[in-house]
């Protein structure tokens, strides 16, 4: 398949393997509830980094801290992109402008917009025409919209959603909505892509498609991926490294193999259905 992107998809300024995101001693409380307790993570450009853990472990909270929706009480988050940026006290839109894109556990698309408009909205930070030019449209704004339309079409092709590009998102089935949400995040030209359970609620075929798209984005374009996922099969298959959270603490980190055999992890999952999955043999495809 021809995949000549008319614009660059990955906006990271780093070389593969360089430190991109550093989470240091992160602590987050909601009143009496401790969601995160001294979490440290180091994520490198170009890897697929999975975060797993039982329900309520603090995985989503961690992503929310990174994208600026929650502000931790302690610790800090550093992001490297043309220099060092402390994300800890930035607002979500400022963090997005640095190239941090994400999807949500419960789909948060712009429901009344078409697929095309959702994706175009994802490219918001790159659109430069000012208000006056936009009101006049003819000329500069139109040129810009056409240029981005081309870029969006590349994403549509990558995710194989040509047939639904003019559909209003709310009318689409769940699995396709998840895919559109990935597309919207890609439209931001991420330096790092945070995916919160991108395969939750999907059937096997849909999961395979999604895994393929994630691998494509990572391998072909080198976009760093932080992946929260409950499906251990997928996690073990596609991740380079895995961190395990339990009750807000990181209890293990390493390659899928290391994590799988870690007694602490097995204990954390004991009594859960995942225990069986963890002991399943895997093969990296």
């Amino acid at each position: 398949m021809q995949r000549g992107f008319s614009s660059q998809l990955n906006s990271s300024s780093l070389r593969p393997g360089e430190l991109q995101l550093s989470v240091e001693h992160l602590q987050l409380n909601f009143g009496g509830v401790t969601a995160l307790l001294g979490v440290d993570l180091q994520i490198r450009q170009g890897e697929i980094f999975a975060i797993i853990g039982p329900n309520g472990a603090g995985k989503t909270s961690l992503l929310n801290c990174i994208s600026g929706l929650y502000h931790p009480q302690r610790g800090r988050i550093l992001f490297y992109h043309n220099g060092e940026h402390d994300l800890t006290h930035l607002r979500p839109h400022q963090i997005a402008r640095l190239g941090v894109a994400r999807t949500f556990q419960n789909i948060e698309l712009f429901r009344h917009m078409t697929v095309l408009d959702n994706l175009l909205a994802g490219a918001h930070i790159h659109m430069k025409s000012n208000l006056l030019a936009s009101l006049i449209y003819w000329g500069m704004a139109q040129r810009e919209q056409i240029q981005f339309r081309r870029f969006i079409e590349d994403i549509i092709e990558l995710l194989e959603i040509q047939a639904i590009r003019n559909k209003v998102v709310a009318t689409l089935p769940y699995g396709l909505q998840k895919r559109v949400e990935l597309g919207r995040a890609l439209a931001l030209r991420p330096a790092i892509l945070l995916l919160d359970e991108p395969m939750a609620g999907m059937n096997t075929e849909e999961k395979e498609d999604m895994a393929r798209f994630i691998l494509d984005v990572n391998e072909e374009y080198g976009v760093t991926i932080v992946l929260i996922e409950h499906d251990m099969g997928v996690v073990m298959d596609i991740s380079d490294r895995v961190a395990v959270l339990n009750f807000g603490q990181k209890i293990a980190e390493g390659t899928p193999d290391e994590v799988r055999n870690n007694p602490l992890v097995i204990e954390a999952y004991l009594g859960e259905e995942h225990a069986a999955l963890l002991s399943r043999p895997f093969s990296k495809s």
Partner: peptide, 14 residues
């Protein structure tokens, strides 16, 4: 429109 439909997602999109 993004703000109307989903303001949190809008902010995360920049």
């Amino acid at each position: 429109v993004a703000i109307r439909d989903q303001d949190i997602a809008a902010s995360v999109m920049g």
